[in-house]
Design a binder for these strands. Structure first.
Lengths: 122, 122
DNA sequence: CAGGATCCTTTACGATACTG
DNA sequence: CAGTATCGTAAAGGATCCTG
């Protein structure tokens, strides 16, 4: 029960830890999950929409996080030829594979509120 | 398809966004999910164990995040009366309700590696 | 061992302009 | 509208030393 087998552990058991690290690296920062959650609800959204809906985010951060996620192919950016231009952001198919994560996060948050405020409407 | 019904949306659809916010507030920072993931694998662990297993974390951060999570009742801290003293950290029952989230994060990370390196052993 | 204290560097984040 | 630039703060990160 002490520390035997540490060497063997490295091979099999760290996989999960590394996996968590990989995922968190891609979702790094305070905002990506919020943005993704918002985009999952809202479908195609414009910069300003996101700025309004993602509570508390500043334009600089939004801009930066969107670029980040675009680079990682989690979202797509489409410039529409209007005047002034419009830009639409949308979750990619690949980005949608993150939905189970976001869902669990949302579910936990909902349960959390219930455990605090009870089932009453508050 | 434009923006009709925004008013109605606020009542029903923001629940999820707020839930995500709640959860992310409790899991805020770069390390909590890593620590939880590690504790979920390792069971009871001591400070030094965590310092070794949570890749890259500094003692200062570990200490702070552990306190944070203890305050939120996600983990428990037990001081054993040895000499020198030993301290064991463990996920609480409440903290275990986060497992579905961590699991999804780990799963995604695993799939992510596969999508990059293929099924070959790398 | 389990940490807190200190000091210093580097990112992350935020608020407020400003531009095509 | 969709951003970038600029500036300032706060938190993260690292190193080292210290204590019960």
């Amino acid at each position: 029960m002490r520390k035997k087998q540490i060497v063997n552990n490295t091979a099999c058991c760290k996989t999960r830890i590394i996996a968590i690290k990989d995922t968190m690296e891609i979702l790094s920062g305070k905002w990506k999950i919020h943005i993704l959650g918002t985009l999952m609800e809202g479908g195609k959204m414009r910069f300003m929409d996101l700025l309004r809906e993602v509570d508390g985010i500043a334009a600089k951060m939004l801009s930066k996080e969107l670029q980040d996620m675009e680079m990682n192919h989690l979202i797509s950016r489409t410039v529409l030829d209007t005047k002034p231009i419009t830009v639409e952001y949308e979750i990619t198919e690949y980005g949608q594979t993150l939905e189970p994560i976001i869902d669990e996060i949302a579910n936990w948050g909902i349960a959390y509120r219930k455990s605090i405020y009870g089932d009453r409407k508050n």
